[in-house]
Design a protein around this nucleic acid. Sequence first.
DNA 1: ATCTTTCTGAAAATCGTTTTCAATATCTTC
DNA 2: GAAGATATTGAAAACGATTTTCAGAAAGAT
Lengths: 143, 143
Amino acid sequence: MDRVKLFNDFLSQKGLKSTSQRKLILETFLESASHYSTEELYLKLRKEHPRIGYATVHRTLKLFAECGIAAERNFGDGQTRFESVHADEHHDHLVCTKCGLIIEFEDQKIEELQKLVASQHNFKIENHRLELYGLCKHCRSPK
Amino acid sequence: MDRVKLFNDFLSQKGLKSTSQRKLILETFLESASHYSTEELYLKLRKEHPRIGYATVHRTLKLFAECGIAAERNFGDGQTRFESVHADEHHDHLVCTKCGLIIEFEDQKIEELQKLVASQHNFKIENHRLELYGLCKHCRSPK
DNA sequence: ATCTTTCTGAAAATCGTTTTCAATATCTTC
DNA sequence: GAAGATATTGAAAACGATTTTCAGAAAGAT
Ligand SMILES: [Mn+2]
Ligand SMILES: [Mn+2]
Ligand SMILES: [Zn+2]
Ligand SMILES: [Zn+2]
């Protein structure tokens, strides 16, 4: 559990405290590979821990993002989503507009061409987002 | 003025009315090539037409999007922006995180590679977004 | 001109997110 | 293991962008 240590180091370095809620939220967040909205993770946690508060879940997700173990995403449904980040890996997304399925991909050629475009405009890229929206394999076929 | 006719056809086809506000908003929207938030366009309009309402501006922008003469964009600053769409042209964006400058580009190779990625996942693309965030030419150089 | 329907603008409502605040938990220091 | 200092929690309120409501005004049909 490398990310747990990473988060604890982040907390102590910032003078923040290690609480049972933070441990619980991190554990649950790491359990699944999904792209959670605050609401979704809150509802999942509340099943087993009815005392947990929405604000705590949200604040903790923001902390994950701040320390780099989570990334904030926005797929245009009006909710910010958080996903677990592995080391310095990067990926982009295919998003099914019908069932919500999210597929991750990385294409090195596209990444290169992005850099080329940026340099042609004298632009220094800090980050980017590429999302392909459409119908997934299952939602394409009627039946 | 092709887009004016397009909008009027859209209105009459839907049983909607052609009002002085709608004419004015469309005219002002088309005048500039910028990526307007509702707020921005509202403030611009209000200078010459203090009686216009925010809700009317917003509703009208949504109508533009619905009839295809505008597209909704979201560059992560929490505001929906509307830009004029020319025919079926498509483009992506470079966004300066410091000054807000928006540069448009289209790279045919990237578009091709996106299709390839999609087909590899048996995915049917409906639309996509590619945004490169960073520093523009001016904001890069200190001075 | 009259009637019917849609539109407008101000204000209120909504939705996701963030902040506030009093009670509680954690961490230090003795 | 207390006691004190500081950060955290959860509920509720505040927030900011967007959307809806509603009564009066305007547009279009007859
Ligand atoms: Mn992902
Ligand atoms: Mn554009
Ligand atoms: Zn699907
Ligand atoms: Zn700039």
